[in-house]
Amino acid sequence: MDQQMDQPTEQRAESAQELDTRVLQRTAEHLIEHWAGVFAPELVERMVFESYAALACTAKVRTYLAPLAGHFAADRLTALAHTRTRDQTSVPQVLFVDEEDTSRSQIAAALLIHYARGAVVARSAGFTAGDAVDPLVLEKLADRGITTEGVYPKPVTDDVVRAADHVITFGASDGIHVHPGTAQEHWTVGGLPPGTTPERVGEVVEAIDTRVKELLEQIRTATPSPAATASPRTG
């Protein structure tokens, strides 16, 4: 029998926490090197461990919690860097926020990423991050050829809100402090409670798809072309 399984539950939990700490420390070291000259090492390390704590608050399965925290921290640092260097030529950023980030916000972000093809950065978050993305949501997106590998529910944080040029909320919209210059919309698309049928999920995906296409067209119309933002030639 596996030696770890012979250990009492308390010892196995302690061993798991020690392993997570080592993974988080290695992640912090990597991100500190990546963001050298941009962020102080202390800020990067704090971001990694804060991200872990934020995900741990609602996680029921902790097996991959440390790696997910690393991805979460990396994205938050990218958002923070965008906030510091934002100008007219920056790639537009959109944040979709739902109650638990398990359905509508994930659908919207995945669709926008799919249609924008790198022209827009899309993120999703929840007021309280759920345990996992709804499997029916993943199935319906996969039917459209949309890759959803690695997606997971995330709590909304101020750094991703600050980075967003557009904040789109579903369900309750209280609790989001949108910063000056950020456009905010509330999309009235029905939720997906437990037990929702595949047909209903498909209807919600279609409804969000229509709104995402409209949003993308709005962003494309409002975003200056490179030629428009280039400095006029003199001679």
Rank of each mutant, 00 (worst) to 15 (best):
F49W: 13
T63I: 14
I176S: 08
Q7A: 15
Q184K: 10
P226T: 08
G118R: 09
M1R: 10
Q88K: 10
V120H: 09
S124K: 02
I168F: 06
L43W: 06
T182S: 03
A66G: 09
L138F: 06
I107D: 02
F170L: 06
R46Q: 15
T169S: 14
G37W: 07
L80W: 07
R162V: 05
A119P: 00
A81H: 13
Q7E: 13
R22I: 14
V23L: 14
V160H: 00
V97Y: 02
V161Y: 05
M5T: 14
G126K: 01
I168P: 01
E149F: 03
R86Y: 12
G202I: 06
P155L: 09
A53S: 14
I113T: 15
I208L: 08
G126N: 05
H179E: 11
D6L: 15
W35S: 05
H177C: 03
T58M: 09
C57K: 14
A56T: 04
A40C: 06
R162Q: 15
R62S: 11
A53E: 15
R162D: 14
G70P: 04
T169W: 01
F39V: 12
R76D: 00
Q88Y: 04
D98V: 00
G70H: 01
L215S: 03
S124I: 03
L138S: 08
P224V: 11
R233K: 09
R220E: 15
L136F: 08
S51R: 04
L111N: 02
D143L: 10
E45A: 15
G191T: 13
V44G: 02
S105R: 08
P194L: 11
